[in-house]
Design a protein around this nucleic acid. Structure first.
Lengths: 248, 248
DNA sequence: CCTCTTGTTTGATCCTGATCAAAGCGACTG
DNA sequence: CAGTCGCTTTGATCAGGATCAAACAAGAGG
């Protein structure tokens, strides 16, 4: 349907996600080679800030391993997460030189980076990259709009359930739906980070997690290890009207 | 800095925004001609739905005159606006065939459309279009993230002030800051639409508008005609920490 | 072993914004 | 002009989540 081969499954992805995400498998070999020699890696410890809002940002990057968050902070400290970067996700924008929000490593993090200028130059000669990047950005925009519905109109319980469903679904996507219905996964975020994601306080997050446990929607092996006995049960709590892709 | 000439001011824009927004002035004349012969116009009355969420969408378009909104609706009727389209804004995504949300004309609306397939084909041969589109999409993503901060963390009063500031600023951009400090403009949205934008109820919107009037931050000539005696005063109510571009 | 720290849970109370209800205000029409 | 419709304002009350506060759990490090 497009110029690109079907998206590669994450486990097929080698050490550098950009190579697979931004460039299609039919691109000429020398373009790939050019990309290869441009890239370099940066590692961050959990909790470390990758870049502060307003700072000069002279690279673009994609996540290789670990999780990073994009957050906006108001003067008085109110904080809202506006993006969650998982392996293979992309950050940075060709054509803008300062970061519009904080980027923070929530776990140990490895990113694959390209200096912005040569990356932009390369975009000009290899249109596939621009097209793939457009596609990814449009997906992100769709996700942001789902998120806006969540922030603006969902109840605390629905917000929690939605977040759990998002993470569960992503994990299930990788692990291809483990034990037929029953699903278990690690929560990569603290209660406070969940609160920042959802526009709630950490106390409310904690209370609603307890409520979902009490009501049998989820179980907790440990505080950060979740078991979902029946995904449909969880999904019913999200307020969304269709499942939309649990089954591949 | 890029392949594109500096962005044209809106008043320079002819009858078809895509021509100016999506293609740079240095592009070859025959590309412009090809775009010209592809385009067609569609008109909608205020209140009319352009396309329903989930419907097949076989065109891309940009707004010529009027205002359209993108909204998501939950089963029980809760509604969240996720996009506001002003003249020269773009809708539709190459590479996806169904609309992910409702598009509605809030005023009488004229859109300049291109059938999706030929538009995609053209994108493949004219990389400038893809690049320009990427740039626009990234701007939209930034706007969506600002909006997420508003929805997740701002108070009702801050939300109202932010919305008024956004509209005032946009109007000032066009009319180049009319009466030195004092600014007046029409609100293109009903109280209910404002509520859907802000994740509030229409009653709360009405009350906070009254409060801002009582406190001298705004005046109302008519219910939909706003006077801002001092923009800085309004801006102080938004919770944002820097003005960020009122003055060109 | 104890202490310090970080993340989490739970309780008590408060307050912002939602909900329910009624009335005002134009604009348009018969 | 009365009557209606769409939009807006205002009032009374309610409730969901925030805030303040305390205690718990699990490491890490001395």
């Amino acid at each position: 349907m497009s110029l690109h081969a079907p998206k590669l499954a994450p486990q097929d992805c080698g050490d550098c996600p950009i190579r697979h995400r931004a460039v299609c498998s039919r691109c000429e070999a020398d373009e790939l080679a050019r990309l290869e020699e441009m890239k370099y890696y940066r590692s961050f410890q959990a909790g470390q800030t990758v870049i502060w809002s307003g700072d000069r940002m002279d690279f673009v990057a994609s996540v290789v391993t670990g999780i990073a968050t994009l957050t906006q902070t108001m003067e008085d400290g109110r904080r809202q997460m506006v993006g969650l970067l998982l392996p293979s996700d992309f950050v940075g924008r060709p054509g803008r030189s300062t970061a519009p929000f904080d980027v923070t490593a929530t776990t140990d993090l490895v990113m694959c980076c390209f200096r912005k200028k040569p990356f932009e130059d390369m975009m000009n000669v290899t249109p596939h990259v621009a097209q793939r990047l457009l596609e990814m950005t449009l997906d992100e925009l769709d996700a942001a709009r789902e998120w806006m519905l969540l922030l603006g109109r969902k109840t605390a319980r629905e917000k929690i359930a939605s977040l759990l469903a998002i993470i569960a679904r992503r994990d299930a996507g990788l692990r291809l739906r483990a034990a037929k219905g029953s699903l278990h996964f690690d929560l990569p975020l603290t209660r406070e980070e969940m609160a920042d994601y959802l526009g709630l306080t950490l106390e409310t997050v904690s209370r609603q997690m307890s409520a979902l446990k009490r009501d049998g929607v989820i179980e907790m092996e440990e505080k950060r290890r979740i078991v979902v006995p029946d995904f449909d049960l969880l999904f019913d709590e999200t307020g969304d009207d269709t499942d939309g892709g649990m089954v591949a």
